[in-house]
Design a protein around this nucleic acid. Structure first.
Lengths: 142, 142
DNA sequence: ATGGTTGCAAACACTTTGCACATGA
DNA sequence: TCATGTGCAAAGTGTTTGCAACCAT
C-alpha cells in the first residue's frame, strides 16, 4: 500500500522545535488547503469550519511564531492588516482586483536580477521584497 | 525681479477644489521638504517644529483627502501603518534597512514591462503596484 | 515533570466616525 | 454667507502583553 505524504504538519512543527498542538495543526491545515494569502478573519472562519476553536490571541501568536520560523510568510495588500501564506510556495507575487477583491498569483517576475542590480549599485543586502499589483481583473473592467 | 516658484501649495490645493487652510499647507510643507515617505508621527513632529498644530484626526483626514486627490501617495513598509509621499515624485521604489530603519530610494526598476506582460497574459488592468526591498544597508552589514 | 502553549482580560497603535463649531472663498 | 474644514469625544479594527492554568513531550 502506498501512502504518498508530501508533507506532514506535525513533523514540520517538530522540526522547527514547536509542539504539535491542535491549534497549530489547524492553522497549518487551513493554509495548506488554500492557494491565496488569508487574513486572520478568513483563517478564523476556516478554523471554525474545521471545528478547531481557539482564542484570537492564540491565533496571532501562532501566526507570529510560524512566521519567525519561516513556515509562513506575511503579506500586505494595503489593507491595514496582514495576510499569511505558506512560505514554501515558490516565489510569486499577486494581483489584487480593487473592485471584487480577487487575488491572482503572478509568476515570472524575475526580481532576482533587479535585486542583483540594487545590491551592487547601493551596497545593500536585500533579504526580502514585496511586489504586488493592484487594479481591475478581467471580469471587472466593463 | 525674478521669483522662480516651482510649486505653490495654495494653488495646488485650490486646483484640487480644496481650501488652502493652514493645516493643509503645513502638511504639504512638511512633505515637500523631505525625500523619504513619512508616517503620521513624523509628520506630526515636523508640524510641531513648524509651529503648526492640529488635531490627530484632522491630520488623518487631510492625508486621506490629499491621497484621494492624488496629491499624496500612501506607502506601506510592513509596519502596520501608512507612510506618505508626494505623488508627483517620479516613479521609484524603496529599500528599507531592517536594522537602522534607513530608507533609500531605488530607481530604474522598469516595472512597466512587467506590468505589460501581466496585462497581456492575464487580461487584468494594472493601476498601481507596490515594490519595496528590505534587508541591511551598507553600514549595518558587519 | 516541566517548559512550551493557551485563554482571558486588558492594553496598545493606528485609523475612522459623528456632531457641533469655526473659517476660507 | 455657507459649503467646507476642524476639534473633541468616542468608537472600530488589528494586534500585543501579562499572567495563571494547561498540556505535549
Amino acid at each position: 500500500m502506498f501512502s504518498i505524504k508530501i508533507h506532514n504538519c506535525s513533523d514540520e512543527l517538530r522540526n522547527a522545535d514547536l509542539k504539535a498542538t491542535p491549534a497549530r495543526l489547524g492553522v497549518l491545515a487551513v493554509l495548506e488547503h488554500t492557494d491565496k494569502p488569508l487574513d486572520v478573519q478568513s483563517i478564523t472562519s476556516s478554523l471554525h469550519r474545521l471545528g478547531v476553536m481557539m482564542d484570537r490571541v492564540t491565533l496571532f501568536r501562532i501566526l507570529n511564531t510560524l512566521t519567525q520560523k519561516s513556515i509562513l510568510k506575511p503579506i500586505q495588500f494595503n489593507e491595514g492588516k496582514l495576510r499569511y501564506e505558506y512560505a514554501a510556495k515558490p516565489e510569486h507575487h499577486h494581483f489584487v482586483c480593487e473592485k471584487c477583491g480577487q487575488i491572482e498569483d503572478i509568476e515570472d517576475c524575475n526580481v532576482g536580477s533587479l535585486i542583483k542590480n540594487i545590491s551592487s549599485k547601493k551596497g545593500v543586502l536585500v533579504k526580502r521584497h514585496s511586489l504586488e499589483f493592484f487594479g481591475l481583473c478581467a471580469d471587472c473592467q466593463d
